[in-house]
């Protein structure tokens, strides 16, 4: 089994009321393949039923598949197929109407992405404070007043990078190839590295 194209006639486990339920219908219809969808209310039941052999395939977000695979009795007996049959971007979400909080969340993420781009890690952030690069200086609070504009301290970016690390560090620690989830960076790589991850500059 190497491709989702070989799944004609399969029984597919998924959650009810998700976009996944529609995506799987679109995918099978689009490829003119027969299928049976077994839709559960909760993810735990989907996984349990799949593990009990009710279905041939389980479909959900790619990161979800990686996470759920670790819960199976024999994770190595199951493969995540390469096809990505829909666009399901995940990211931080905030409530409408509080733009200051929205800005803080947005720039926290941007800080992590720019941190990776400029090579600032939790290990070298103290040393980077002495860097001559003007963007690093602005980011770590030596120049300009981005922290104040957000209503935070001047060292907010320093704190994020020191305590959490940049995007790559966080990714590799939580979901990357060396974790049980074994997810490649794929589209999550930086824009200059074959992915689509891009943040506006600290300016």
């Amino acid at each position: 089994m190497k491709s989702a194209k070989e799944l004609a006639g399969a029984a597919v486990c998924t959650n009810t009321g998700t976009t996944t339920e529609l995506n799987v219908a679109d995918y099978f219809r689009g490829n003119k393949m027969d299928y049976k969808v077994v839709a559960f209310e909760k993810a735990d039941e989907v996984v349990a039923a799949y593990d009990a052999g009710r279905c041939d395939v389980y479909t959900t977000d790619r990161s979800g598949l990686a996470a759920q695979r670790t819960k199976l009795k024999e994770p190595d007996a199951h493969v995540v197929l390469p096809e990505i049959i829909s666009k399901e971007p995940l990211g931080p979400a905030v409530r409408h109407g509080d733009s200051q909080w929205g800005d803080i969340v947005r720039w926290s993420l941007n800080t992590m992405i720019i941190g990776e781009e400029l090579g600032i890690t939790s290990a070298n952030v103290d040393k980077m404070k002495g860097s001559p690069n003007p963007e690093v200086k602005r980011m770590l609070g030596q120049e300009a007043n981005f922290g104040e504009q957000l209503g935070l301290g001047q060292d907010f970016a320093y704190n994020i990078l020191k305590k959490v690390g940049n995007y790559a560090e966080s990714y590799n620690r939580n979901v990357g190839p060396d974790t049980p989830l074994k997810l490649d960076r794929g589209l999550n790589a930086l824009w200059n590295n074959g992915g689509i991850l891009y943040a506006p500059p600290f300016r």
């Binding site: 009810t16 339920e21 077994v38 839709a39 559960f40 039923a49």
Partner: peptide, 20 residues
């Protein structure tokens, strides 16, 4: 039945249709 994927009224209509 929604819990075990039997497609009855609540699962299909008040579940999937409502969400979509």
């Amino acid at each position: 039945a929604a819990a075990i994927a039997y497609p009855e009224l609540v699962s299909v209509f008040a579940g999937t249709v409502l969400n979509q």
